[in-house]
Simulated scan of single mutants.
Amino acid sequence: MQEVFNVTSLLFLLLITTGEAIRCFQCSSGQDAEGEDTCGAYKKFDKTRHIAVDCNSEESHMPGSFCMKVTQQGPMGFVWDARWRQVIRRCASVAELGVTGVCNWGVYENGDYWEECYCIEDECNSSTRIGSNLILTFTLLLLSYLILH
C-alpha cells in the first residue's frame, strides 16, 4: 500500500508545474515627460525603450497573471487631429469580462472613448492592437453615437 501511495505522490508532483509568471510592459503616457511619448499614445510603442517586468515581482506596480493595455481618447475627430489620448500598459489580475485575448470598449458620459485589452503571452501588451479590429471598433462606435444622438 505504501508503494502505491509513493507512486501516486510522485505522479502528482510531476503533474504540478512550477509556472513562470508572465512578463508585461508597464508604463503610462500620463507619466511621460513633456513632449515625450514613450508609452505609445501617439506613436508606435517602442519595445526597446522599456523592459518587460515579471508580474509577480517587486518591480510590477500590480501583480497579475496576464497583461493589459488601456487606451483612452478624447471625443470626436480623427486620430490625426491632436485630440487627447492616454495609454496605460501593465499587469492585471482580473479581466472585467473574465476573458483574455479580447478588447472591451465603450464611451464615457463625457464622450471620451476607452478600450481595455487583455492578453496572456509574454510582452503581448506591446502591440498596437491586441484583439480588436480598429475599423470595426470605430464603425461600432460611430453607429452607437448616431443611434444615441
Rank of each mutant, 00 (worst) to 15 (best):
M1G: 09
M1P: 05
V4A: 14
F5L: 15
N6A: 15
V7G: 02
T8Q: 11
L10H: 08
L10N: 06
L11E: 09
F12D: 09
L14I: 06
I16F: 06
T18N: 11
T18G: 08
E20I: 03
A21H: 09
A21M: 07
R23A: 01
F25I: 10
F25L: 09
F25E: 02
Q26T: 14
C27M: 13
S29E: 10
S29I: 11
S29C: 12
G30P: 00
Q31F: 08
D32S: 12
D32I: 11
E36A: 14
D37S: 06
T38I: 00
G40S: 13
A41G: 12
Y42P: 03
F45G: 00
F45I: 02
D46R: 00
T48K: 14
R49G: 00
H50V: 06
I51V: 12
A52V: 04
N56D: 12
H61W: 06
M62W: 01
G64Q: 04
G64C: 06
F66W: 06
V70S: 11
T71A: 06
T71L: 15
G74V: 08
P75W: 04
P75Y: 02
P75V: 09
F78G: 09
V79L: 13
V79N: 05
V79S: 15
D81E: 14
D81G: 04
A82C: 05
R83K: 14
R83N: 13
W84F: 11
R85D: 02
R85A: 14
Q86R: 11
Q86Y: 03
Q86F: 02
R89K: 10
R89L: 10
R90E: 07
E96C: 03
T100A: 04
C103G: 05
W105T: 14
E109L: 05
D112K: 05
W114A: 04
E116R: 15
C119W: 01
C119E: 08
E123W: 02
E123A: 12
C124E: 01
N125H: 04
S126Y: 00
S127H: 09
I130G: 06
I130K: 03
G131P: 09
N133C: 09
N133H: 04
L134Q: 10
L136Y: 02
T137V: 15
F138L: 15
F138N: 11
T139N: 13
T139H: 03
L140Q: 13
L140F: 11
L142C: 11
L143V: 14
L143R: 05
L143W: 01
Y145P: 01
L146Q: 07
L148K: 11
